[in-house]
């Protein structure tokens, strides 16, 4: 059989044929669906990604560049506010800040959003109350600048968190699209042909079985006919023998009418046989 190497190992039964048929149908529907679920569709469902979505690839990269450049600007402003602190405090506060960091005031919450079957992550920033490691930094001088710098950096970090969401969405999207493409290809080039092959195989096997069955039935019928014919002949012989015996014994006692009667019956039956 030609498809023997590329089919599933099933017994060619009607039940597995039904199974294969529904499998093929499923694969085809899945294929159509997956093909439609391309990048843009996922993108359009996701608000953050939406900002960046566009069919023109240059446009997309331009927007991402823009988002990243915005980060560049925000970070620059933040860095500058740190320079202000250095100016106002008149020294380096870096070490002190590093040492007095204890508990994060600024944290993120991570969640996933289901977008047409793809889970895209989203970070959400929040600040915990009562955590103020640097409240007293620059108490003697520069405190106002320190506070301002903290606010500027907090805003900058918020931007960073937003960007991180966006970026992770792309990373995952990248992954998803690869997987989807792999699946589409697999379905198109492996699963569908293979299922079709299997169906073909099962069909041909079943046909073969049908033919065998028919032949076998015929054989059985023939044999049965032969057997019947043989039995009939035997019966006739027996009957004939019996008649002869009867005639031999009954000729002395019975009259001619009886003889004619039986002879008529036999004659009729013989006629019928000829017709048959």
């Amino acid at each position: 059989m030609s498809g023997a190497t590329n089919r599933e190992a099933v017994f060619p039964t009607r039940q597995s044929l039904g199974l294969m048929k529904s499998k093929l149908k499923g694969a085809q529907t899945g294929h159509d669906l997956l093909k439609r679920k391309n990048v843009s569709e996922v993108i359009y469902h996701y608000p953050v990604v939406q900002i960046l979505s566009s069919h023109a690839t240059t446009e997309i990269t331009r927007r991402i560049d823009e988002a990243k450049r915005k980060m560049g600007r925000v970070m620059q402003i933040a860095a500058f506010s740190l320079a202000e602190v250095t100016y106002a405090v008149g020294g380096d506060i870096g070490y002190q800040v590093q040492e007095s960091a204890k508990s994060a005031r600024f944290r993120v919450r991570t969640k996933q959003e289901n977008v047409s079957g793809v889970f895209l992550p989203a970070f959400e920033s929040y600040t915990t109350d009562g955590n103020n490691d640097f409240g007293l930094t620059g108490l003697g001088k520069g405190g106002q600048q320190v506070q301002r710098c903290r606010e500027t950096y907090a805003r900058a970090v918020e931007t960073l968190v937003e960007l991180a969401s966006l970026q992770t969405a792309f990373v995952i999207l990248d992954e998803v699209i690869k997987v989807v493409n792999r699946r589409v290809n697999a379905i198109e080039h492996v699963i569908i042909p293979r299922t079709e092959n299997t169906i073909k195989y099962i069909n041909s096997e079943l046909d073969e079985l049908d033919r065998e069955e028919f032949f076998r039935l015929k054989k059985v019928q023939n044999k049965k006919q032969r057997d019947t014919a043989a039995q009939d002949a035997e019966m006739r012989l027996k009957l004939a023998a019996a008649e002869k015996a009867e005639a031999a014994s009954g000729a002395t006692s019975s009259d001619k009418e009886n003889e004619a009667g039986t002879g008529d019956i036999l004659g009729e039956s013989e006629d019928a046989d000829v017709i048959f």
């Binding site: 933040a78 001088k141 106002q144």
Partner: peptide, 20 residues
């Protein structure tokens, strides 16, 4: 309160610390 909140971008006027 303590100075402008525009974080490094604004602030034409001098802050109290500058004046000190």
């Amino acid at each position: 309160g303590a100075g402008n909140m525009s974080g490094g971008s604004g602030g034409d006027g001098k802050s109290l610390e500058d004046l000190f």
